[in-house]
Design a protein around this nucleic acid. Structure first.
Length: 167
DNA sequence: CATCAAAAACTCC
DNA sequence: GGAGTTTTTGATG
């Protein structure tokens, strides 16, 4: 179970995302249709004003990121995970827009070139897709691999950045 | 709480 | 197509 989180919807041309916030920042971002019950959003009572401010930033950043552009500003992240996962996510955020990296590249970058399989797992555990560009990570042979919100989404996001993949 | 077993968004032979 | 490497997660004693 997670700590108290506040969930707010974000409407985009591609559907309604769901952003989960904690007292420290953005915890998780869900893709449309993947949050089970569409419309069953829980709103905690005492929503701090700062969260509303974060949400405004998140909304702008997400909308911009979906067009293939690089968002100007991000809300504070509160992604929790193991040290290994944090290293992977941190490395992924270094990937410039329009560029891709392979799981092997990431593994090597964090000093464990043979942990590419585990890197894939860390990517799958990434709570904040799009902002942490896990979609820019392809397999060594330029295959899609997989994606939390569905392979369709990964392909769509890449296409908007001018990247095409076979699989 | 410590240990074992199975699975995963991979890569190389 | 098959084997190998690393980490995470859930079950078992």
């Amino acid at each position: 179970m997670k700590a108290q989180t506040i969930s707010l919807p974000i409407k985009t041309p591609d559907g309604t995302f769901l952003a989960h916030y904690s007292e420290k920042g953005l915890v998780e971002l869900s893709f449309p249709g993947r949050h089970g019950h569409n419309g069953s959003v829980k709103l905690e009572k005492g929503m701090p004003a700062k969260i509303h401010a974060w949400h405004r930033t998140t909304e702008a950043a997400l909308t911009k990121a979906l067009t293939g552009a690089k968002p100007k500003k991000f809300p504070p992240f509160h992604a929790e995970g193991t040290e290994f996962q944090k290293s992977v996510w941190r490395e992924m955020r270094k990937i410039a827009g329009g560029k891709t990296k392979s799981y092997g590249e990431i593994a090597e970058a964090i000093g464990k070139p043979k942990a590419m399989r585990a890197v894939g797992g860390a990517c799958g555990a990434n709570p904040i897709p799009v902002f942490v560009p896990c979609h820019r990570v392809l397999a060594a042979n330029k295959k899609i691999g997989g994606f939390s919100g569905g392979r369709e989404w990964k392909r769509k996001l890449l296409a908007r950045e001018g990247i095409t993949v076979d699989n």
